[in-house]
Amino acid sequence: MANNTAVLEKNPTKNLTNRELPKYMPRCDIYETKDALIVLADMPGVDENNIDITLEKNILTLTGTVCETNFDNHSLIYSEYKTGNFERVFALSDEVNKDEIKASLKNGVLKLTLPKSPVAQARKIAVKSE
């Protein structure tokens, strides 16, 4: 679960500030309900103040900055996972109602609700008789 795919650097995170940490791609689940698309993204170590969701044209970018974990008088001696910031980019179709995107964060998991636009919901085409 912690083995996120490194997208940028492979360097150890030692002596780097938050902003300089490597970026990882959070693992995501996506499902579709009747009226929305739901994205779940694993972003451990990120709290709601350090999450950035931007939508430019059709590109949705999720960025999470981790809170630093430093322990006084303790040094890292064994490491099986690396810490870093999270970033993932999705291209949205026009079917998403961009004004009503909702996001919540719980236990390090971001839940993004992308409601379908009314156009996408009602796809029934009336057939007229001539």
Binding site: F71, L76, I77, Y78, S79, E80, Y81
Partner: peptide, 15 residues
């Protein structure tokens, strides 16, 4: 410090 673990959950250890 990197180590690969086949076991989960994975840990970091400070001491």
């Amino acid at each position: 410090y990197s180590n690969y673990s086949f076991e989960h959950p994975t840990f970091n250890v400070y001491s």
